[in-house]
Design a binder for these strands. Structure first.
Lengths: 145, 145
DNA sequence: TTTTCATTTTCCAATGGAAGAAAATGACTG
DNA sequence: CAGTCATTTTCTTCCATTGGAAAATGAAAA
């Protein structure tokens, strides 16, 4: 058989997906949220605790990241858990790698890491209650946060 | 000497640079401009010819890409030539590679490639004159564009 | 079933980005 | 120097995005 068919993929939605992803990555709050979910799953109330914005705003930022395909969410009762896309296409994998490579040296992201370590020591139910009531919850190590 | 100093770079401007770059990449017109400059230097009038927007808009988009560090410009008399950053930092190199890898399969970018090949056959002075006067310039192969 | 509650959506005000027209720049040309 | 001209900047308008408050959702708990 002579002659070679070269198949060239032309995808008219490539641009759309590309700019949806870069737009999702163009906001510092969303970079912080993504970085917070890079190494482990986080529930919304943990992310609200991390970042000083209303839960409505955090929720919208998370939706933007999920719609771009960078995060995925899992519902467990009343709680929603977010983590980075576990079945990434190459473009998503590359975008996540880009953030992983270039965001972690940022001071804010570093201090977020520390605060997340603290947040991890608190029962999410207590976290949510604190956010609801605006009060601190006493823990074994004293009063948290 | 015992003890190891581990130097951790903490850069408070990392986030700023990261989002400046991703914001520059979050617009289809800017992706097209960047893609057009990936393989060779282009002057503004060539890019205006490629994309159906005012020269003012093109100029502003190019400035955004240059301010992000993705493009660099070279002035030659009244003409300004743009090309991709020739001394890229790692984040810039990664961003350019991201576009190179994921934008080229887009239909619009593909047809831009074809049109750029046509544009390359035209003397930039004629191009500028066409844009000035709104008239076509006859060429050896007939009437261009 | 009614209440509680974590999260999302809706609504509105404020901000930011993108577009073109026209003025301004800065450099060649006569 | 005056004129021409490629490009950039300014100005204004329009549309998209962000943020919080409050209503809506939907799932557990009482």
């Amino acid at each position: 058989m002579t002659g070679v068919r070269i198949l060239i993929y032309r995808n008219e939605k490539t641009m759309n997906q590309l700019t949806t992803i870069t737009h999702a990555l163009s906001d510092p709050t969303r970079i912080r949220l993504l970085a917070a979910c890079l190494d482990q799953e986080r529930c919304v109330c943990q992310l609200v605790e991390l970042i000083d914005l209303s839960n409505a705003s955090i929720s919208k930022h998370l939706a933007t990241l999920r719609n771009a395909g960078l995060l995925e969410s899992r519902k467990e009762g009343r709680w929603v858990h977010y983590q980075t896309q576990q079945s990434p296409t190459t473009i998503i994998a590359d975008a996540l790698a880009f953030v992983q490579t270039h965001a972690l040296s940022d001071d804010q992201i570093q201090s977020d890491k520390s605060k997340l370590a603290e947040i991890d020591t608190i029962d999410p139910c207590d976290l949510a209650k604190m956010q609801r009531t605006g009060c601190c919850i006493p823990t074994q190590q004293g009063v948290s946060l």
